[in-house]
Design a protein around this nucleic acid. Structure first.
Lengths: 133, 133
DNA sequence: CTGAATCCGGTTCGATACTG
DNA sequence: CAGTATCGAACCGGATTCAG
């Protein structure tokens, strides 16, 4: 039986979980689930990502054994990223979760709207993410 | 048909996805999946969480219609949090994902160790989260 | 092309203290 | 008990710059 105490502050699954659910990791995995991609392909396919974040995300994923990094020593070096078997397995869960959110996004938006109406004071909560100014 | 372009920078599922996969939200949902909890119960059950973060997480989840907040006006006020039907549905996916990570944590740790060995320069990557001195 | 390193602003987070 | 206000520190993340 597995099941460590996920609720313990030092539970080892937390950092890994953070890796794979990080803002960009999900999108990278989602893209690689279809087919291998080159660095620049990923960069242009994922709206709003910076090279730094892409590089960082890819490195973390590779380190976790979820993504495979293949270097082709052509004139301008070419690097292709793909999912490992482990990564592919994870991908199914991840895309499933994203699909769930996608399916329920409208309902959630309604809930948010209702909540914001019923909230007397200016909702500071609504500002989470998407930092203005 | 659903399926917005998840890869677009302004895709509306992103902020929601961030809400539910935030470090603490997953744990809160995981706990509420078993049974309703009071504020202080959650606070003590989740190792390392601060009141501020718990409050914030709970508020976001409630706003998203995933968690229900019930106030019992006893002498010392009593507040009980539970999952809504929507939240319960989400919980299955979430705990499934956590369980997956739990199942593969050892393998991932091996991958990390191997990666770190093969990496000549001191791995700055390894420091992500869990910030050491 | 791929990616690492640096700089630096903004946001988030945690600890504490305080209110209802 | 339940939660908010404030403060300071840590971190994230973007733009830029440089190297292989």
């Amino acid at each position: 039986m597995h099941s460590r105490d996920v609720f313990a502050a030092d539970c080892p699954v937390r950092p890994i979980f953070d890796d794979i659910t990080s803002r960009w990791a999900t999108l990278v995995v989602g893209l690689l689930a279809n087919r291998p991609h080159r660095f620049s392909e990923l960069a242009s396919a994922i709206g709003g990502i910076s090279e730094k974040m892409l590089s960082q995300t890819l490195k973390a994923l590779t380190r976790d054994g979820l993504v495979d990094r293949a270097v082709t020593p052509t004139v301008p070096i070419q690097v292709t990223y793909s999912l490992t078997a482990l990564g592919a397995d994870l991908a199914t869960h991840l895309v499933g979760l994203v699909a769930w959110v996608d399916r329920h996004t409208d309902r959630i938006h309604e809930a948010q709207a209702t909540y914001d109406e019923d909230t007397p004071v200016p909702p500071a909560v609504a500002n989470r993410r998407r930092g203005g100014a």
